[in-house]
Amino acid sequence: MTAAPRPLAAGAARAGATARRVLLQLRHDPRTVALLLVVPCLLLALLSWIYDGSPQVFDRIGAPLLGVFPFTVMFLVTSVATLRERSSGTLERLLSMPLGRLDLLLGYALAFGGLAVLQAGLATALAVGLLGLDVAGPLWALLLVAVLNAVLGTSVGLFTSAFARTEFQAVQFLPAVVLPQFLLCGLFVPRGQMQPVLGAVSDVLPLSYAVDAMTEVTVHADLGGAFVRDTSVTAGCIAAALALGAATLRRRTP
């Protein structure tokens, strides 16, 4: 018999196995995958059609939305997936096994992050290639921020789903958690011009930084300190949400 791998390697292997399992579940559900990949593209196409007469508006809001769509979609999908895991009893079973709580969440983040690369890649290709979105910065940066947005949605979804007991509650977290961030992320009113209280709130919401980073890429040809700062803050928020998610996941429940 082979010896058990060291704890860190075992944790990574368990996270990998979890990611594989989540992707396998998705493979058995092709309609969900199709919706995940196609809906953001359709929305972007709709948007460019709406602003057919004023392409500069599409340039201004198209890129931020390229980040907001994956964030929203991944948030919803993750919330539902984890809630299902909770209600089917599989979560309780996993937590009675030698599976680290963070390993489980990392597995989810990996799986949905991988899907996010596909989704963001498709949406970016469509927006830049067909819809004529003007991007000053490099495309890889646009893709990177889009993926970060999606993983942010996943990790925030993992965290908030700990507070949902029913499917109805989980779905309500979308307007409760996502929409305020959407309204305050600077898409409607630039963050600098917001009423001070709202500006301060906007400053502590993770999506604001993700959208700021996206705007940096569209406006500046070379990426400066602001881009690095905004992407770092977004990555930090992902890590914090995952850590909080792991902390709120209870092995023992009443």
Binding site: T2, A4, P5, A9, A10, A13, R14, A17, T18, R20, R21, L24, R93, L94, M97, P98, L99
Partner: peptide, 16 residues
């Protein structure tokens, strides 16, 4: 697939 996943949680690693 169910059993393979739980087995990987219980005994992780390529070697096993």
């Amino acid at each position: 697939e169910n059993l393979a996943y739980y087995a990987a949680v219980l005994a992780p690693g390529r070697a096993r």
